[in-house]
């Protein structure tokens, strides 16, 4: 049947509805991306918008830069460890939260809180938790005799100095980031778990399959597409995030122990004034994230159960 009105035609209505999104993506994603691409091949600085094209000099410089190499390594550690912990913890939480129990709404609310609070604000709270003088964690450790006496398990010093010791600083940054991402992972997995037909699990249970058998042979394979999406989102958020690192450590303690690519791009490009190098560093995200997205979405497509 021929549509009476133009807007009833799919070939007109669909592009029309998509148009605002396309404009939005072009303006807020495409344009800055093209700018970053052009800047990375130039000698532009924050103080001088006029620039010359200098070829791949910025890329050669940053690849040879030890701070960049360290930041790249840190970014992978930060991303990989954070996502692994988020996946495990969010699965446990989702398992708990799909069951009925008293006060479930309160637990759900508390778990979702970190996602609703502004990230910078939450991280500032952690600054106090991890403070070198007033840390309440240290106070508890001291109270239990685990810290601050010659024979204490964690050492004789009065404080742990969470953000002053390279290893502990990385642990702190990762844990705060996990706290931040956990609600997202949990919500996605709860949605995924709720979509698994109960009959399949019940049938397996009747057939004598234990919890782990059901987990590894039914739940996880069926959840794979959902886990894929969780990994993708978590990777995107983690790889490009600098808020937690910047607020907690500014990339320190020396020498750049928690510096990640996003914070290094800001440090070099804005703080250091070398916008071109900052752009070149940030461009490193693109192939990595495009690759991760392609792999994850490819696997998810294969794994979709129809």
């Amino acid at each position: 049947m021929k549509e009476r009105y133009l807007l009833e035609r799919e070939n007109i209505l669909a592009p029309l509805l998509l148009f605002p999104v396309v404009i939005y993506v072009i303006l807020l994603v495409g344009f800055p991306f093209v700018m970053a691409f052009v800047y990375s091949f130039s000698n532009v600085t924050v103080g001088n918008p006029d620039y010359k094209i200098v070829g791949i000099r910025n890329f050669i410089d940053i690849i040879g830069d030890k701070v960049f190499q360290k930041s790249l390594g840190n970014t992978f550690i930060f991303t990989f460890v954070s996502i692994s912990i988020v996946l495990i913890l969010s699965h446990i939480l989702a398992e708990v939260l799909i069951r009925e129990f008293r006060g479930k709404w309160l637990v759900r609310f508390l778990i979702l809180m970190p996602w609703t609070a502004p990230i910078a604000l939450g991280t500032i709270g952690y600054l106090w938790f991890l403070d070198s003088v007033f840390s309440p964690i240290d106070w508890i450790l001291r109270s239990f005799g685990l810290l601050g006496s010659p024979d204490a398990l964690l050492g004789p010093m009065s404080n742990m100095y969470w953000l002053g010791r390279p290893g502990l600083a990385m642990v702190s940054v990762i844990l705060v980031h996990v706290w931040r991402l956990l609600p997202l992972g949990t919500v996605i997995l709860i949605a995924g778990m709720n979509s698994i037909p109960r009959e399949i699990l019940e049938a397996a249970q009747v057939d004598g399959a234990g919890y782990f058998r059901r987990l590894f042979n039914i739940t996880l394979p069926l959840l794979f597409p959902v886990i894929g999406v969780t990994v993708l989102f978590a990777a995107l958020f983690t790889f490009t995030d600098m808020t937690v690192v910047w607020v907690l450590t500014m990339g320190g303690p020396p020498p750049h122990s928690t510096q990640v690519l996003a914070s290094l791009a800001f440090l070099k490009g804005i703080q250091g004034g070398d916008l071109a190098q900052g752009a070149a560093i940030s461009l490193f995200f693109f192939p990595v994230l495009a690759g991760v997205a392609a792999i994850v979405l490819g696997l998810v497509k294969k794994a979709v159960v129809t």
């Binding site: 070198s132 003088v133 007033f134 404080n159 100095y161 969470w162 002053g164 390279p166 320190g252 303690p253």
Partner: peptide, 21 residues
């Protein structure tokens, strides 16, 4: 010094002095 100097911030001077440490 202690390892806190590697996690020093603009507020650390004030904090440590005020804490009497």
């Amino acid at each position: 010094l202690t390892p806190e100097v590697f996690g020093w911030t603009a507020a650390s001077n004030n904090q440590l002095l005020i804490a009497g440490r």
